[in-house]
């Protein structure tokens, strides 16, 4: 589903990622771990073209991501949902409106574009958004303004927004970094449910190794701008984890 080939990215003089090669199959759930600054976020943001690599290629669903072609990129993004550390919701609007923004990619031509640019949505889209809100179990908050919601509720709205896209791939960039442990667990469980029930390929960035181990099938660890470990979660040894986070010298 996702292929990353000889991917490199520098920020100014500093090389963040060098020659990354990764293959992720359809329906897999994968977690990216690594110390701060190891480039996990950069890598995951390249999958939907929010970060443009200096060299190398990214394929999603057998098609190469054309970072420079605005239209092709937009078409690709329609099927890639993403959730974020800071939720990235439009705070001053309702939960329902935020979920509806997930439909904008689909409503991008003719009458649909006209209507949505004026701020209107059709009934079927609204109903679908309500459905998504009940899937993430906050249907009672649909008319609440997002800035009145708790962190966990905000992340659920963000997930509903991503689901509204009917995504084939779901990216999660440290989705629990701003949540308490209990809420974090529930959010991860929800992501797993989406992966299982909807067959959505899940790629998450996490800073917490325990959660990664408890829930995900596959781990990719980054260290020094390279893939340091890539395999089944149960094969990830404690010594390896210590090396990833730089507590022990590699080799």
């Amino acid at each position: 589903m996702i292929k990353i080939r000889s991917y490199s990215k520098n920020f100014k003089e500093h090389a963040v990622l060098t020659d990354i090669n990764i293959d992720i199959r359809e329906g897999e759930n994968t977690v990216l771990i690594g110390a701060s600054g190891s480039g996990k976020t950069t890598l995951v943001r390249s999958i939907n073209g929010m970060v443009v690599p200096d060299s190398g290629e990214v394929y999603v669903g057998n098609e190469r991501i054309q970072f420079k072609n605005k239209k092709a990129l937009r078409n690709k993004r329609k099927h890639i949902g993403m959730i974020y550390q800071h939720f990235n919701l439009v705070e001053r609007t309702t939960a329902l409106h935020n979920v509806l923004t997930g439909a904008l990619g689909r409503l991008d031509t003719g009458m649909d574009l006209f209507r949505s640019s004026l701020g209107f949505f059709e009934k079927k889209d609204k109903e679908k958004a309500c459905e998504m809100l009940s899937f993430v179990k906050i249907e009672d908050k649909q008319d609440k303004r997002v800035d009145k919601l708790s962190g966990g509720e905000k992340q659920r709205v963000a997930i509903a927004r991503a689901l509204m896209q009917e995504p084939k791939v779901m990216l999660a960039d440290e989705p629990t970094a701003n949540l308490d442990p209990e809420t974090s667990k529930n959010i991860i469980k929800l992501l797993m449910k989406i992966n299982r029930e909807k067959g959505v390929t899940l790629v998450a960035v996490l800073h917490d190794v325990e959660t990664a181990r408890n829930y995900f099938d596959r781990v990719i660890a980054l260290r020094g701008g390279k893939v340091y470990f890539d395999g089944k979660t149960r094969d990830l040894k404690d010594s390896c984890v210590r090396e990833i986070y730089g507590m022990e010298k590699a080799n």
């Binding site: 937009r74 690709k76 990235n88 919701l89 439009v90 923004t101 904008l104 949505s116 701020g119 963000a158």
Partner: peptide, 29 residues
Amino acid sequence: DNKPKEAVEATGARTIQVIRHAVFPQIMP
């Protein structure tokens, strides 16, 4: 706040839709 704007861009929305749904609500008051 550029984060919601980015998030809506990442759903594949057009610029005019991003303005209407992610920028406008923020500058409304």
